[in-house]
Design a protein around this nucleic acid. Structure first.
Length: 422
RNA sequence: GUGGCCGUAGCUCAGUAGGUAGAGCGCUGGAUUGUGGCUCCAGCUGUCGCGGGUUCAAGCCCCGUCGGUCACCCCA
């Protein structure tokens, strides 16, 4: 076959889909318990929305977006979730209906990067946003929520990294300090970092090149230039995190790529080396100016996003859950197929999950399949049974089999399923 | 966009100095005229990624190409 999935876009066959759903369900549970409502926004948004929020000069906007023009309208398949949610928040004037809004979302995002482990062109994120609460308690609670979510999933050993970029002024000030510090040494920096010096100097702090390390280590820190309310905000955050018992590290080199962040910044890294470099599973931060910049009422906001594929990697091999298919109905002989179909339908109507085998193959083959499917009970419907008005109920776990009158079948199946597996 | 590694059965892989393909798993059937998981027996599936070249002969060597993967950049 010469038709293949698009590079970097993957199929989730049932085994993978089950893992994904597990993550999504844990996420939904955690968020709804904390008062977040789900928001579903379109996959496609005006290109300008992402250019203005994420920022020109970022890789995401400059070379990774799936953009196209339709009827003279520039459109982009969303590369992340925050911008669309912010757009919806403004468009529906949600701020007028309530002062604080908490939303979560799940869904596919698209970035035309070169695929690699834990990074795909179509990937999936779960994320949350809080609008209208400027305080550090809000930040701390959101971070704690992320930790709860991970713990619920069984990822209890992840490490939270926090940092503060300060507000726009502090960030600009620090950027200048950093540029002034690094410029004299520019030719000693890695080629990538020399480029970053002009485009995005903060990201030099994130460099993995060995020749950059000594400069990074002795570079001025963002926290050194924080003052006033920015400083108080960060101190408040740390205090609340400590009270919540959230283990975190103040990572002075933590910088995130998207332009809209200010003040609180955080990342959660998996303890396990699931990715080659870093193992960031969750990223987030405060973006107090975005809503206003987009033309909405000045509204502080904070959010985070977690990569579903990376969470699944972090989960690793965890035991598969119990069978979803307790009953397998075997039809023996052509005349038994219709009755077997009826039995299957009636079981499902009564809430019992079951599968009917009407392939007409040998009983051995059908039972093999019943076993392979993980069924607890096999019901054998054959000509002999039909003539006697019974169905053979075979408990595959207990190795017992009994004939059950058709009228009592449902009750017997329920009784069997209620028994503990031997 | 750059670099490394890899493309042989549905899956995981073996294939020795070039002599035109194998194992395990899985699947199907049988041992048990209609009784699973264990065991035993038998059987099925391949454009050896694709194209060209060298050679009497290429899965193996050479060139190209496509695909996958990992890493860098960047990011969830």
């Amino acid at each position: 076959m010469n038709l293949r999935a698009v590079k970097g876009m993957n199929d989730f066959l049932p085994t993978d889909a089950r893992q994904a759903r597990r993550v999504e369900e844990a996420f939904r549970r955690t968020m709804e318990r904390a008062g977040f409502g789900e928001v579903r926004t379109p996959l496609v948004e005006p290109t300008a929305l992402f250019v203005r929020t994420i920022g020109e000069g970022t890789d995401v906007v400059d070379k990774e977006m799936y953009s196209f023009t339709r009827h003279d309208e520039g459109l982009t398949i969303r590369p992340e979730g925050t911008a669309g949610a912010a757009r919806a928040y403004i468009e529906h004037k949600v701020h007028a209906a309530e002062t604080v809004t908490k939303w979560f979302y799940t869904g596919a995002m698209f970035r035309a990067e070169r695929p690699q482990r834990g990074r795909y062109r179509q990937f999936h994120q779960v994320g949350g946003e809080i609008y209208g609460d400027p305080g550090p308690a809000c930040d701390a609670e959101l971070i704690a929520l992320v930790v709860e979510f991970l713990a619920d999933l069984g990822i209890g050993d992840a490490v939270v990294h926090v940092n503060s970029l300060g507000g726009p002024e502090a960030r600009a000030r620090y950027r200048q300090v950093l540029v002034d510090y690094l410029t004299p040494h520019a030719e000693k920096l890695s080629a990538d970092s020399q480029r970053r010096l002009a485009s995005n100097p903060l990201r030099i702090l994130d460099s993995k090149a060995k020749e950059d390390q000594e400069w990074i280590a002795s570079a001025p820190r963002i926290s050194d230039v924080l003052e006033g309310e920015d400083l108080a905000h960060f101190e408040g955050l740390k205090k609340h995190l400590a009270a919540l018992g959230v283990a975190y590290v103040h990572d002075t080199q933590l910088v995130r790529g998207l332009d809209y962040y200010g003040r609180t910044l955080f990342e959660v890294k998996a303890a396990k080396e699931i990715l080659g470099a870093g193992s960031t599973v969750v990223g987030g931060g405060r973006y107090d100016t975005m809503i206003g910049d987009l033309g909405g009422p000045a509204t502080p906001a904070i959010g985070f996003a977690a990569g579903l594929e990376r969470l699944v990697l972090a989960l690793g091999e965890q035991k598969a859950e119990e069978s979803l298919l307790p009953v397998y109905v075997c039809a023996l002989g052509e005349s038994a197929v219709s009755p077997a179909l009826v039995i299957g339908r009636d079981l499902r109507r009564a809430g019992v999950a079951c599968e009917v085998d009407g392939r007409g193959q040998s009983l051995k083959s059908q039972l093999r399949r019943a076993n392979a499917r993980g069924a607890r009970i096999a019901l054998v419907v054959g000509e002999g049974e039909l003539a006697r008005g019974v169905v053979q109920l075979k408990d595959l776990a207990a190795h017992e089999q009994v004939d059950v009158a058709s009228a009592e079948l449902l009750a017997s199946v329920h009784a069997r399923l209620a028994k503990a597996t031997p």
